[in-house]
Design a protein around this nucleic acid. Structure first.
Length: 799
DNA sequence: GCAGCCCTATTACCT
DNA sequence: ACAGGTAATAGGGCTGCG
């Protein structure tokens, strides 16, 4: 029979040296199905010396077959390696788990140069070779198997008679989504599974059900976890979502179960959650998605807590939440009057998870299908690996061998050009942007690992492009691997975007297409970075180096042409130029640039007024709709206290809208006064900085590191990448000797002078010094005390 | 002992 | 654990100073 299914998860099993691919999915009737495919044989490649007759090596392998009992077949094939034709043997192995060992042995055989692709996991090999795509529909000829069904939680188990075939069908089935969050009880700092129970688990489903499992007064968590397991099994979700679960909750629950003698079966095949590739926790037959892994997509959210992300995405405003720190959980649990608040906090966390999942899952699924990484680990894979899997998929199609990852020394190279801005205010400035500059340069000049012509090589027959300055050469013909992939991606994105126009913005179709075009954009934009990444399998430094060289050449020429049109360039960075907006001239210019440089440039936006500091990469512009565009300045930095950011934003607004430095200076003085009265919220004084390495590895003493040490001292468990929030308190000595984690400090010990001189004044002076207002002037207020009393900041901010 | 200078470590931004 | 270019702060070493 024919089974049509949407692929949710994939895993493989090897029993008696016979592998099976397990494809977990949902069929068109909404049945949960498992399709078992036993018909796919793993393989690796052994590249042989050009001079050797492959059949001779072939014979040698045949003769020594006893050494390699799992080899089922060897065939001579033609492949490419970095674009150059190579002879190879394709060695098929019955048991995929022996390939790395075999490949190592093969390298010692006379006539074999190198082995490839033994490092591609069997399940990924299966997906890529058979064009089986995660989060997409397929059709398969299969027979039902009753016997297996008792062991797995699905409606039907099928054995595939042939490999599934991808189907163009873009809808997403009705998936069951379950979200959860946990509360652990600890009076000794961060909870440890060997001693601290999970006193609360809050779950919610996309069918609208909410549940809480609570420990009794003895805090025994056996029943809590059992109830959770039962609930998961009975709801039988396709996707389980959480926040930080890959790092925390799953391992914790696993450990608790071990301690309590419980079997932690929340999957569809009676196995326990286990950590797998790229650090994701795998729940067989379901997709475990940790939304934290997608938080990086939202750079505007500086401190990546669930609450902040939910607030940003409009899921639940942070003001509406009761926020409870992890270390306070025990107090809230023990105090009967506060336990209700803890319950509400926990339930709200799960509600936030469900809301964030709603906002992210479409994108996650589209990214998953685009790069072919299963949904549960596309999030945990770093950007470089997402790009790489996308490339591997294409390499397979064109017969390009996948290079091994080899350790490379870090060798920096020259990047983009940034112009010094003309400081001060400018009116009516247009920003011209080259669209997807690096990808388009790679297409235009055929920059690719397989088109690079090294200095030792002769001139290729079809000619070559030579990058300016660096003089790297690339064959004009045939089109390289990157050119094909990137042209395809850019074409697909345009296609999607034009399709989107047919749908209403709030329709399901629009949302799915939008998620798809975003995924395509992310991969396209990361391609240049991938090319210059020393960890890349296809790393060839000249490819990245030539891209930036062509970029510099392009922008320099664009500037020249702008000046020829009589348009003065006031700023530019990498792929953009800022010029006076004179419509006819701009139109002529863009046409000329496109014609001469072969790259599209178009006006991105026009600022009614723009302000540049002396520094590059820091400016603020006023848009026609009255909105401010603030770039690089303290306002958008996460490591300045909110008071400094809010004040600077207000200063910029006064400058750009009213052009009154005097008013801005007065406002600053007033603000300082209000701050000295401690009339600003305490949380606005917190400074957040990331811990980028273990505290003991820092070469110099730093505020956030000292604060982190205090947290560790009190039992906090900190990880690399965590943001430390601290405030500066009164005292003597170095700054780092006068900081405290914000939760340990009270408002009255805060060193207001520090905030005035090191936060408020620099942030305001950054802008106002351009207008002749000094730091001293900001500090010596001429505002009469009486006026201060009457003119509160509410006059500016509203109340 | 400390102001002043310079360099370095560190973080976070821009494209 | 995708690139290089850039700004900015604070630490820390050093000099010179009654």
């Amino acid at each position: 029979m024919k089974v049509t299914f949407w692929l949710l998860d994939v895993n493989y099993e090897v029993r008696n040296n016979e592998p099976e691919i397990w494809l977990w999915g949902i069929d068109t009737s909404g049945n949960r199905v498992l399709i078992i495919d036993r018909k796919f044989t793993a393989y690796f490649y052994a590249v042989v010396e050009e001079a050797f007759d492959p059949s001779k090596v072939f014979e040698e392998i045949e003769q020594n077959k006893a050494d390699y009992p799992f080899i089922v077949k060897v065939e001579a094939v033609e492949r490419k390696f970095f674009g150059k034709p190579v002879k190879a043997l394709k060695v098929y192995c019955r048991n995929p788990d022996v390939m790395t060992r075999y490949a190592r042995a093969f390298r010692k055989i006379e006539g074999i140069k190198e082995c490839f692709e033994d490092d591609i996991r069997y399940s990924m090999r299966y997906l890529i070779d058979n064009d089986v795509i995660p989060c997409a529909w397929h059709e398969v000829e299969a027979v039902e198997e009753e016997e297996k069904k008792v062991e797995v939680q699905v409606d039907h188990v099928y054995v595939a008679e042939s490999h599934p075939k991808f189907m163009e069908k873009t809808d997403i089935p009705n998936l069951r989504v379950l979200g959860f969050s946990t509360i652990c009880y600890s009076r000794e700092g961060s909870p440890k599974p060997e001693r601290n129970p999970v006193v609360m688990i809050s779950v919610a489903t996309n069918s609208g059900e909410e549940k809480q499992f609570l420990a009794g007064e003895d805090k025994g968590d056996g029943p809590v976890i059992e109830a959770f397991i039962d609930y998961v099994q009975s709801f039988d979700p396709d996707i389980i979502v959480g926040y930080g679960v890959n790092r925390q909750d799953w391992a914790y629950l696993n450990e608790r179960c071990k301690k309590l003698g419980l079997r932690f079966f929340v999957d569809r095949a009676k196995t326990e959650p286990h950590t797998s590739v790229y650090g994701h926790v795998s729940i067989t037959g379901r997709a475990n998605v940790d939304l934290f892994d997608f938080a990086d997509e939202f750079s505007e959210v500086k401190v990546k807590t669930l609450e902040n992300l939910a607030d940003y995405l409009g899921v639940m405003k942070i003001e509406k939440r009761i926020l409870i720190e992890d270390v306070e959980f025990a107090d809230y649990w023990d105090d009967k009057t506060k336990r209700e608040l803890l319950k509400q906090f926990s339930m709200d966390s799960t509600r936030c998870i469900m809301g964030v999942a709603e906002a992210i899952l479409d994108f996650a699924m589209q990214l998953s299908s685009l790069v072919s990484l299963p949904l549960d680990h596309v999030g945990t894979a770093a950007v470089g690996f997402r790009v790489e899997w996308f490339l591997i998929k294409h390499a397979q199609k064109i017969g390009e061998l996948v290079p091994k990852r080899v350790e490379q020394p870090y060798r920096p190279y020259v990047g983009a050009i940034v112009l010094s801005p003309k400081p001060g205010l400018h009116e009516n400035i247009a920003v011209l942007d080259f669209a997807s500059m690096y990808p388009n340069l790679m297409i235009a000049y055929n920059l690719s690992p397989d088109t690079y012509v090294s200095p030792k090589e002769p001139v290729p027959p079809g000619g070559f492009y030579e990058a300016p300055e660096v003089k790297h050469r690339f064959r004009k013909e045939p089109p390289g691997f990157y050119k094909e992939v990137l042209s395809h991606l850019i074409g697909v994105r345009d296609e999607i975007r034009s399709k989107m126009k047919a749908y209403a913005r709030d329709s399901v179709e629009y949302r799915v297409l939008d998620a798809r075009q975003k995924a395509v954009k992310v991969i396209t934009n990361a391609s240049y970075g991938y090319a210059g990444w020393i960890g890349a399998r296809w790393y060839i430094k000249p490819v990245a180096e030539a891209a930036t060289a062509w970029g510099r050449h392009t922008i320099i020429n664009a500037i020249k042409m702008a000046e020829e049109e009589g348009l003065k360039v006031v700023y530019g960075d990498t792929d953009s130029i800022f010029i006076k907006y004179e419509p006819e001239k701009v139109e002529r210019l863009t046409a000329r640039i496109c014609g001469k440089l072969g790259l599209e440039i178009k006006p991105d936006k026009v600022y009614t007024r723009i302000f540049f500091t002396e520094a590059k990469k820091r400016y603020a512009g006023l848009l026609p709709d009255g909105k401010l565009d603030i770039v690089g300045l303290e306002v958008i930095r996460g490591d300045w206290a909110a008071i400094a950011k809010k004040l600077q934003e207000k200063v910029l607004e006064i400058i750009l809208k009213e052009q009154s430095p005097q008013k801005a200076a007065k406002f600053t003085q007033q603000f300082i006064y209000e701050l000295r009265q401690r009339r600003v919220p305490f949380r606005d004084l917190i400074i957040w900085k990331t811990l980028t390495k273990p505290v003991e590895e820092y070469a110099v003493k730093a505020s956030h590191v000292e604060a982190a040490k205090m947290l560790i001292e009190k039992g906090w468990k900190l990880a690399i990448g965590d943001k430390i929030g601290y405030v500066v308190v009164v005292g003597t000595g170095r700054l780092y000797e006068r900081v405290k984690p914000y939760m340990f400090a009270s408002y009255n010990e805060v060193d207001i002078d520090y905030y005035v001189t090191n936060q408020i004044v620099p942030a305001a002076a950054r802008i106002l010094e351009s207008f002749g207002i000094t730091e001293e002037q900001l500090l010596t207020s001429k505002v009469e005390d009486k006026e201060r009393e009457t003119r509160r900041l509410t006059d500016f901010f509203g109340s």
